[in-house]
């Protein structure tokens, strides 16, 4: 029995070089096919400048489509403040339902008009056009610097939201309320 076990283990160990060879051969085949395949991936893309990597380095949590869907589907943002970091024009053309228009450069103007201003521990999710923009990250960092403790970024942004059939709200929406409220010195808004 002991001899049988040794033999079994010995065979397993002896198969390791074959497994390594299989891995190497498959990797080389994959890289070769990718090189000739139309639309193959560039080998050398540096992901260290990707918005999600930057968010990770900045300590800003990233959330994804299922979480944003859950928040929107549960109504009134599901207790989550969605902040659209795009400009007012893009926002008016279409945004995630319940989101407020808060471009990072207008944060100091818009924020006092939101109920959010008095709730630094409220859950906030920022987004912008998609993965090629960094406005959502800029906004998230600005909020974090203002002592907001639960700020995260939806990296897929509006592009991903619409690509996966998300409902779109048009018009000035809550932003107008927020801006109006700011002017009146109130703190209304959703949720």
């Amino acid at each position: 029995m002991g001899r049988g076990r040794t033999t079994t283990l010995g065979r397993l160990v002896a198969a390791i070089p074959s497994a390594v060879l299989l891995t190497l051969a498959a990797s080389v085949a994959g890289l070769a096919v990718n090189a000739v395949r139309p639309g193959g991936l560039a080998w050398s893309k540096d992901w260290s400048h990707h918005v999600e990597t930057l968010a990770h380095e900045a300590g800003v949590p990233v959330v994804f489509l299922p979480e944003v869907r859950t928040a929107v589907d549960s109504g009134e943002g599901g207790g989550v403040y969605l902040l659209d970091a795009r400009g007012a024009e893009e926002y008016a053309a279409g945004h995630i339902p319940g989101a407020f228009c808060v471009p990072p450069e207008e944060l100091d103007v818009v924020l006092p008009g939101l109920a959010l201003a008095a709730m630094p521990d409220a859950a906030v999710v920022t987004y912008c056009s998609g993965m090629d923009c960094d406005d959502a990250l800029t906004l998230a960092r600005a909020l974090t610097n203002r002592a907001f403790t639960a700020v995260s970024m939806y990296s897929g942004g509006f592009a991903e939201w619409t690509e996966y059939g998300g409902e779109v709200e048009t018009g000035a929406g809550p932003a107008a309320v927020a801006t109006g409220a700011a002017a009146a010195g109130a703190t209304g808004g959703r949720p």
Partner: peptide
């Protein structure tokens, strides 16, 4: 890694 892994 993303190119090689699926082939492995």
């Amino acid at each position: 890694a993303a190119i090689a892994l699926p082939w492995v």
